[in-house]
Design a protein around this nucleic acid. Structure first.
Length: 153
DNA sequence: AGCAGGTTTAGCG
DNA sequence: CGCTAAACCTGCT
């Protein structure tokens, strides 16, 4: 079975992105240190991500392995995937879409998202301000800027 | 049970 | 407008 890890440097974010793939996309993470790692691009999703970071509007359609997560989290993440490129909605609205009012619960679910970007958790923002981000608000801001730029073009 | 979290809204100065 | 307090809901100990 396929089981591999890719890593690429992303200029836009100023950090490395690690992609883990097993029986589907398993996780995406951001690392700053460049020690003892070599760039590696073997997966299709990796190339899609590179194009995304270059500013292309990508519709990620690869399998994601999130079977180990709780039903509620899967529901939130599934709903998050439906949000279009360059679009942002508040936590409360996403909560309403899945039938509850607990905006904080939604935030909690998003914090457990193993695959940022492919599941665009950065498009969920607070009503007054940017809101939080598990990988760092600075990254969230840059992702939104990236999509905004593409949208205006 | 109890606490904390990527929020929200209402209430008060 | 900025600050505090209570309410909402799920996940972890």
């Amino acid at each position: 079975m396929t089981n591999s890890t890719d890593i690429i440097f992303v200029q836009t974010l100023g950090c490395y992105v690690v992609i883990e793939y097993t029986s589907g996309l398993r996780s995406i993470s951001f690392v700053k240190s460049k020690d003892r790692i070599k760039e590696k691009k073997t997966l299709g999703i990796t190339f899609e991500l590179e194009r995304y970071f270059k500013g292309e509007k990508i519709d990620f359609s690869c399998d994601i392995d999130i079977s180990h997560l709780s039903p509620f989290v899967q529901k939130v993440l599934g709903e998050t995937r439906k949000i279009g490129y360059g679009k942002t909605i508040p936590y409360s609205e996403l909560a309403k879409n899945i039938g509850c009012r607990g905006a904080r619960a939604v935030g909690g679910a998003l914090a457990r998202n193993p695959v940022p970007i492919v599941i665009p958790c950065h498009r969920i923002v607070a009503k007054n301000g940017i809101g939080g981000y598990s990988a760092g608000v600075d990254i969230k801001t840059r992702l939104l800027e990236l999509e905004k730029k593409r949208r205006e073009a």
